[in-house]
């Protein structure tokens, strides 16, 4: 939500410190690594980012609502398992490449269903979303192991695993899907009634109830959206790997939450936007990619990302502190 009329570029950056940071690491790696500033590398970054990015879009909605969804990594794994396995069911044996259609549809439906269950429990029981989805995270991961029998599924249809290598002109398909979803979710959040209600419910749930908004069903819809996006992310990830492993998507919920929080969404709800989330996702993507190119060991990436998370939020607090909110601790 914008709240001032004069938005200069500098002021915009102060409100979205993450984009300043994205710019900074972009320049840094362009200077430090000869492989970084390259068109194909940018494609790479976008493709690598799309997995976490898709889920982060949904997480932004859920977190602005004042909820959280920890079960996304497990949902991703379950959807990927369905997408890869269903293709090889005997009933679709004669379908040729069309066997991918029921497999992917079923995977996406499973994602929506998992989200619906989370949302329904949160709505009807009033138990905190953190607890509900923590349970779902364990439970769904358990289902994945039951379903896969602790082993990986491999995609037999090469059309499936070739999908991730497709490009439309210069743009990889995976990146395009991610960018299209980003645009859609951005429009939903900033321009539609559902988006407006998302802010209202997260900003003040009681006032939202008083305004006649049906808060429970509203939250359930957002959980279904994130379930769908997590499943989509799982499908796309399995096309990249040509397989679905039972441990797919482990810790993804933490990466996603990191990206969303970096993007300026408040854990308490009511505040945040997709532009910020895109910045957060890109920041993580560029850092991982750049440090990889510079051959920094993966563990340092964690240390650096952790420090950056805290630093960015500190800057946000500094810049956006209000006149009367500056209570010293």
């Amino acid at each position: 939500m914008s709240n001032l009329t004069d938005i200069t570029p500098l002021r915009w950056l102060m409100r979205n410190p993450i984009w300043g940071f994205v710019l900074l690491v972009f320049i840094f790696f362009s200077l430090m690594s000869e492989h970084f500033f390259d068109y194909r590398n940018f494609q790479n970054i976008l493709v690598q980012t799309s997995t976490i990015g898709l889920i982060a879009l949904g997480m932004t909605l859920v977190m602005i609502n004042g909820n959280i969804d920890l079960s996304v990594g497990a949902t991703l794994a379950l959807a990927a398992a369905f997408a890869v396995d269903v293709q090889s069911w005997a009933m679709f044996a004669t379908w040729g490449n069309w066997q991918i259609l029921p497999a992917v549809s079923l995977a996406l439906l499973v994602g929506i269903l998992m989200g619906a269950i989370n949302g329904f429990i949160v709505w009807k029981t009033g138990v905190d979303a953190f607890i509900v989805t923590l349970g779902a995270m364990l439970g769904i991961r358990g289902l994945v192991f039951v379903y896969t029998g602790e082993s990986s599924f491999y995609a037999m249809n090469f059309a499936y695993s070739d999908f991730s290598a497709l490009s439309v002109g210069p743009f990889p398909v995976l990146a395009l899907i991610f960018l299209a979803c980003t645009l859609i979710v951005h429009l939903v959040l900033s321009r539609t009634v559902h988006g407006r209600n998302t802010y209202a419910v997260g900003g003040n749930r009681e006032a939202a109830v008083n305004a006649g908004i049906r808060v429970g069903p509203h939250m359930m819809v957002n959980f279904m959206i994130i379930g769908f996006l997590a499943a989509l992310s799982g499908v796309l990830l399995s096309t990249q790997m040509g397989a679905a492993t039972p441990n797919l998507g482990r810790d993804y919920e933490l990466w996603v939450i990191t990206a969303v929080v970096l993007g300026g969404t408040k854990l308490t709800g009511g505040k945040g936007d997709i532009i910020g989330t895109l910045g957060g996702v890109l920041a993580i993507g560029i850092l991982r990619n750049g440090m990889n190119l510079m051959q920094v060991p993966a563990f340092y990436v964690y240390v650096i990302l952790g420090s950056i998370l805290i630093a960015v939020l500190f800057l946000d607090k500094r810049f956006n502190r209000t006149a009367n909110g500056g209570l010293r601790l």
């Binding site: 802010y199 900003g203 003040n204």
Partner: peptide
């Protein structure tokens, strides 16, 4: 608490 969403315009 009940009437306004303070963070909204």
């Amino acid at each position: 608490e009940q009437g306004l969403v303070l963070s909204m315009n």
